[in-house]
Design a protein around this nucleic acid. Structure first.
Lengths: 198, 198
DNA sequence: CCTTTTAATTGAACACTGTTTACTTTTACC
DNA sequence: GGTAAAAGTAAACAGTGTTCAATTAAAAGG
């Protein structure tokens, strides 16, 4: 078959990302298959390559979608809190919750790695930075004015801290080590750091 | 061919793990191939399945080897320090160094995940605990006596903290976020936590 | 020592994977 | 209407993990 008028390029892109994301959510990165996605959206595998260029391109697009959903989840949570609430705690909880609810899609963000010599596309970087920026805003609000300029580096470090706890929770390391309350531990480490910045 | 007297079961196991680990070190989890390992050790793929039961069994054995090497690396580092040195800092540095030197094999520890309903074998769990125990010893030494009993939970949390920083360093997240000195950040977060336990 | 049992080893077969490419069909444009 | 470009297909290729009947060599039994 040749060119069909079923969908525009943009629509087709959206359909494949959407079904691909569903697939990733259900079976996880290890069992994800580009061919299976093609089959489910009713196009051939060749078309998927036509739109995304490569397998890596498809995965990046799907992971990009996950990052968008993550940002939405985080913003929705913060939106529900006022300025008096412990908003950073809310952000940490949202980090864990999103990862647990969408564990396969979330894990795929880290299971997939580009070849060593290839940089992620700019659109992907922007989505990561967007999440970091939201958190940074909350971190900055908790620092004394004289140290506000350190908010970016502290935020990166706190993200890594929370990520480590979240990752060990979802990959089974904490189960092996009999850790019962990883979320509380993550909150405690963040509190420890902030105590020194005020 | 049938039964050969070339190697005992234990020798064969060792040969395959050793070559498998070399392979993992070179090409990483994504491009690792059990068939390729079989070819390189001069046995058929069927024999590999005979010895390890499954692909997952082989990967667990290889990752187990990585954990052994990691423990050795950590102990060698601590052995070179005396009681007056900042031994915990040495342990953190060794964590990063090992991960960087053996990045593919190290990443495979986290790239690979067992099916949700399957627990890792006891031998694997023991190796993880062994690493944690070495660190716990150093953490306990830095706590005031009245809080020594909290060493295990604090150690788990500090491991997660350092892991998060190390992971973000190696998977490119910190490059995207323009973090220049992840190791210093990891050390700082550990120091923040310890400041509250003394 | 010779036979039988048993364990080890093989390689072909199967159903999948990502990737490339020659080919066909449709659309858009002159 | 004819032509060039774009879109889409499906087959081919070289891999993968996994299974299993067949084969062979060592061990055990008499």
């Amino acid at each position: 078959m040749g060119r069909r008028a079923d969908h525009s390029r943009a629509e087709l892109r959206e359909i494949i990302i959407s079904e691909g994301h569903r697939q990733m959510h259900e079976v996880g990165f290890a069992h994800f298959s580009a061919r299976e996605v093609a089959k489910r959206v009713g196009y051939s595998i060749g078309t998927v390559y036509n739109v995304f260029g490569s397998y890596d391109g498809l995965i990046l697009a799907i992971n990009g979608r996950t990052l968008e959903l993550w940002l939405d989840y985080l913003e929705a949570r913060l939106c529900a809190l006022d300025v008096d609430d412990d908003r950073l705690r809310g952000a940490i909880d949202a980090y864990f919750e999103f990862a647990i609810i969408n564990r396969h899609a979330w894990a795929a963000l880290y299971d997939f790695r580009l070849p060593d010599d290839i940089e992620p596309p700019e659109y992907y970087r922007q989505k990561v930075i967007a999440i970091m920026t939201v958190v940074e805003h909350e971190v900055a609000a908790l620092l004394k004015v004289s140290r506000r300029s350190e908010a970016p580096e502290l935020t990166r470090s706190l993200l890594a801290t929370v990520h480590g706890h979240c990752f060990f929770t979802l990959n089974g390391t904490f189960r092996m080590l009999e850790e019962k309350d990883p979320l509380a531990a993550a909150r405690a480490r963040v509190a420890d750091a902030l105590a020194r910045y005020w």
